[in-house]
């Protein structure tokens, strides 16, 4: 569903991604681990067509990301590390706007409220201006936007960084449920525990290269941590 084929991305003299190939199958949750600057977010940006690869190609559902940007974006939903919304609008209005752009139709208020509730936002906060929201509350509106899109693939860039442990856990459950429904998930994270607990497969990136790929059921928490630290030190 999500395919990166020999992708290289160069920023001037700096090579952010170096011949990376990975493939995420339908229903898989692929967790990308790596230190800051390893190239995780660059890879997500390339899948979103926010950047164009220097060489190689990226596909979503066999559609080329660069050549068919709008078509590929219909297939995916994205939750950034920090969801930034329109402060002068309420959470509900933000959700209504982004979901209408995403699916091309206006969802009824009741459905919007259900989506916000499913994302964990208290119902009474739905009509408050987003300028008054905490980072976690904004993150939940971002999740609701992704849920509204009913996408076939989810791209997540450190999605739980602003959430409290309980909300992060609820979010993980949402991901597993989506995965069970056949949704493909590619998420970047620094949280080894979250990756092991939620992920189907785990990739470790270092200096723009994918240096390790493993199935999460084949490795324990302790082994994953040891392997990760070994790669970071080498």
């Amino acid at each position: 569903m999500l395919d990166a084929i020999e992708v290289t991305k160069q920023f001037g003299a700096k090579r952010a991604l170096d011949n990376v190939s990975l493939s995420v199958l339908p229903g898989e949750i692929y967790c990308l681990l790596g230190a800051n600057g390893a190239g995780k977010t660059t890879l997500v940006n390339l899948f979103l067509n926010f950047l164009q690869p220097t060489s190689g190609s990226l596909q979503i559902g066999k559609l080329d990301v660069v050549r068919q940007p709008l078509e590929t974006k219909r297939l995916l939903a994205y939750i950034p590390e920090q969801v930034t919304l329109y402060g002068v609008l309420s959470g509900l209005e933000n959700l209504a706007f982004f979901s209408s752009i995403a699916i091309g139709e206006h969802l009824p208020r009741q459905r919007l409220l259900e989506l916000l509730e499913a994302a964990g936002l208290p119902r009474q906060a739905a009509d408050d201006r987003v300028a008054t929201y905490s980072k976690g509350m904004r993150q939940k509106v971002g999740i609701a936007i992704a849920l509204a899109k009913n996408a076939k693939a989810l791209l997540l860039d450190e999605p739980t960084s602003g959430l409290d442990p309980s909300a992060a856990n609820e979010f993980s459950e949402l991901l597993v449920k989506a995965s069970n429904d056949g949704v493909t998930v590619l998420t970047t994270t620094h949280d080894l525990f979250h990756a092991k607990q939620t992920g189907t497969r785990i990739g470790i990136m270092k200096q723009g290269r994918l240096v390790e790929e493993l199935r999460s059921e084949e490795v324990s928490h302790a082994d994953l941590e040891a392997l990760y630290l070994q790669h970071m030190k080498s």
Binding site: L48, F50, P69, L70, E71, K73, R74, L76, A77, Y78, P80, Q82, V83, T84, L85, Y86, G87, F98, I101, A102, G142, I145, L155
Partner: peptide, 14 residues
């Protein structure tokens, strides 16, 4: 600058 461009451009919107 507000950060909304990333979320907007992740939608099927040029």
């Amino acid at each position: 600058e507000h950060g909304t461009l990333r979320l907007l451009c992740s939608q099927p919107l040029s």
